[in-house]
């Protein structure tokens, strides 16, 4: 598990509008990479191109190359469905399936890959994923109750359990804590620290303390100007970015002078 992502010269378009311009970066396996930057700078847009989720919007398209180890995920024969089974995603708002129980939510993705899952295998996957998401102790007595009945923080951990149940190589997290209270946020941050043993993790966050706490490497995105595309300004070890940024823009942002 856990693979490296190599992006080179990636442009993201919505129709004719260039949203993100010329991003190249390497995302290391078994580490946490944080994307920071002000709202609308294209970091979430860029994140969604890493598992081709941007294609949900029919006008969105990319130019450039994204390699998952040695697989070009935009290769002509590559099925976006297969890409998403390798690269899982957790969203800003917890989105458990409202009609499903906690158990069914966790097993939903695993069932897609393996229709004839035995009851015992399914039970194992559910328990392992929920334990992995630090949720097992809280929900083990009500696995067949609706997932929507959990608290916001629990729902988000349920979504993480659901995403890890399919054993992806990479886990993308799009502001996973922005709708959560500080205690739930802490629970998720602890979880991220555990998950990086097995996964490549990319997290978009508005919260610079969070980026500093959880990530090994940080990428700073910014707009070239109003109406201009977002760009990758600087990327490096989190410590270095927050102590000795190379670019003036980065320094301005992390010291709170704008954004």
């Amino acid at each position: 598990m856990a693979k490296r992502i190599d992006v080179s010269g990636l442009h993201v378009y919505y129709g004719d509008f260039l949203a993100v311009e010329d991003v190249s970066m390497t995302i290391e396996p078994r580490s946490v990479t944080a994307f920071i930057g002000s709202s609308g700078c294209g970091k979430s847009t860029f994140l969604r191109t890493l598992n081709r989720m941007h294609e949900v919007n029919p006008n969105a398209r990319v130019e450039g190359k994204v390699m998952l180890d040695d697989l070009d995920i935009y290769g002509p024969d590559v099925d976006p469905v297969a890409v998403r089974r390798e690269i899982g995603m957790v969203f800003q708002r917890a989105n458990p399936f409202p009609t499903m129980s906690i158990y069914d939510n966790v097993i939903a993705g695993a069932k897609l890959n393996n229709q004839r899952l035995s009851k015992r295998e399914a039970d194992e996957i559910v328990e392992r994923s929920l334990r992995g998401a630090n949720l097992w102790e809280e929900v083990k007595d009500r696995l067949h109750k609706p997932g929507a009945g959990l608290s916001g923080g629990q729902q988000q951990r349920l979504c993480i359990a659901r995403a890890t149940a399919v054993e992806p190589e990479v886990l993308l997290m799009d502001e996973p804590c922005s709708a959560l209270d500080p205690i739930s946020t802490l629970a998720i941050e602890d979880l991220i620290a555990n998950l990086k043993e097995n996964y490549t993790i990319v997290i978009v966050t508005h919260n610079m303390q969070q980026a500093a706490r959880v990530s090994d490497r940080t990428a700073f995105f910014n707009l070239a100007g109003t109406g201009k595309p977002g760009r990758l300004i600087e990327m490096g070890d989190t410590n270095r970015i927050f102590t000795k940024p190379e670019k003036k823009e980065t320094e301005n942002y992390i010291t709170g002078r704008f954004g």
Partner: peptide
């Protein structure tokens, strides 16, 4: 909700699987 449909797609559901998982039950 788009969130439900994206949840299914992000798990690697095809369009039909997404419909079965998120659309029909809803």
């Amino acid at each position: 909700p788009q969130a439900n449909r994206e949840a299914a797609l992000a798990l690697g559901a095809t369009r039909w699987e997404m419909i079965r998982m998120a659309v029909l039950p809803f």
